[in-house]
Nucleic acid binder design. Sequence first.
RNA 1: GGCGGGGUAGCUCAGCUGGUUAGAGCACAGGAUUCAUAACCCUGAGGCCGCGGGUUCAAGUCCCGCCCCCGCUACCA
Length: 512
Amino acid sequence: MSRYFVTTAISYPNGRPHIGHAYEVIATDWLARFARLDGRDTYFMTGTDEHGLKIAQAARKEGVTPQAFVDAMVQHFVAMCDKLNISRDRFIRTTDPDHKQVVQALWKKLEEAGDIYLDRYEGWYSVRDEAYYDEEDLVVAEDGTKLAPTGTEVSWTVEESWFFRLSRFQEPLLKLYADQPEFVQPSNRMNEMRAFVERGLKDLSISRTSFDWGVPVPGSDNHVMYVWLDALTNYLTPSGWPAAGWEAKWPADLHVIGKDVVRFHAIYWPAFLMSAGLPLPGKVFGHGFVLNRGAKMSKSLGNIVEPMGLADSFGVDQLRYYLLRAIQFGQDGEWSHEAIARRINADLANDLGNLAQRTLSMIAKNCNGEVPVDGPALPEDEALVTQVSAMLEEARAAHAAVRPDLALDAIWARVSDVNAYLNEMAPWSLRKTDPARADVVLYHAAECIRRIAILVQPAMPESAARLLDQLSVAETDRDFAAFAKCLKPGTQLPGPQGIFPRWMEPEEDAAQ
RNA sequence: GGCGGGGUAGCUCAGCUGGUUAGAGCACAGGAUUCAUAACCCUGAGGCCGCGGGUUCAAGUCCCGCCCCCGCUACCA
């Protein structure tokens, strides 16, 4: 059985989750659910990156310990996953004990490989911010002192730091990109990474002594590991490496990440793994951002979109569907109230919802509420089934390409086909002239809806399950292996119930 | 500044190595219909294909110049 290990980036919980977090985890959930339904041995991980200066500072501001701070904040991320029906196999936290062990083991391995050495890190440091700043970001005050962008004073500081010999990996990385041009997707990101590496790589400072909220460096107690070495290693943690049997859960097939962290995943992470002699992940996919009416979300603009409330007002599946369908995966996309409302009505209520409703209610009224009798199929019936069947391979191709939007495009094209088929066949008229033929038409429509519902599951698990319930499809016949396993005539159906209600603005609702 | 991508219907986008009247979805208008969630189905309107030159029998598609937008350009993640 082919394995599919997919991850999201781990979120930095210095604030509550916003729609960007929801987007990434929903898209990755789609990938994981799809793989599971396709019979693959799937492992899906998401989680939180809990160390580092910003967490320590945020905790201090609230007067709590960093651990207490993250324990509280992580709740919101877990709650979001629960709310959004995220089928993760593990929610990893970088404060988990097994993670710390793996990171320290990896450190030792890099050290053994001769890729870690002690040196000094120099830069403009702000004691107040506990952070280094680039020369070009500094502003000079009237009295000539240099200030950080935050307005605090900086001074040239030299700090002892461990370094990773990233420079050694320039050629190996370029070879990786040449051998596996799809290692980084979309391709424009690959080009950016290649250009970055071609410019030359400097060694990477991978420890800090200026704060202590992190994983201690083995044998160097005053150092904590620098964020990215700690964070990236989360992907390796569930394998239990270097303990025996780690090969069962490493390497990952796919890291789904935001476009802002592509460099860390496409350059640093493979370099660390190469140094340790470990296999590399199959692919890194950098998705775009969800923009609020075209504007980037930020705390200062006060336009951050919060996912939990959206799931409450529009529905979890509706929110999932919108994010997966309306945004081309890999590009930036737009969020707006109007846009999701349009999608809900056009795609879910009018197209799929209405298709199911009209078909199932005709069956309920005219076929004793049973799957109608199939009969001799006309070319039109066969053409429809052929079209609808092709959808599975189209969806698989979209999954392989990490494009949930394309999979849904393909599925909805079929929804439209089935609606057109019904209009053309007009079973409501046939009922009066040729009832047996009307049954055959309804049978084919219902069968197509079953197939569509099976493929809709990764995007909208709850709604698809309700639809399959209404078709009396057994729980065990809902994976892709059952795709071609047709409805049995005579099966009792529970009777139609609307699955995708139209979206009405609350004030309209109240007025009626 | 350097490197890369892009500017096509109101909106989001397809248009591969140049070749019949430039396409899709949504939104809009009309028609048909009434099985269905005022839905579905059909038809239509809507486009100096960023601007200006050039190559060619023929350019959204190639070449040159210009304008505008976006991404990357290492230690906050």
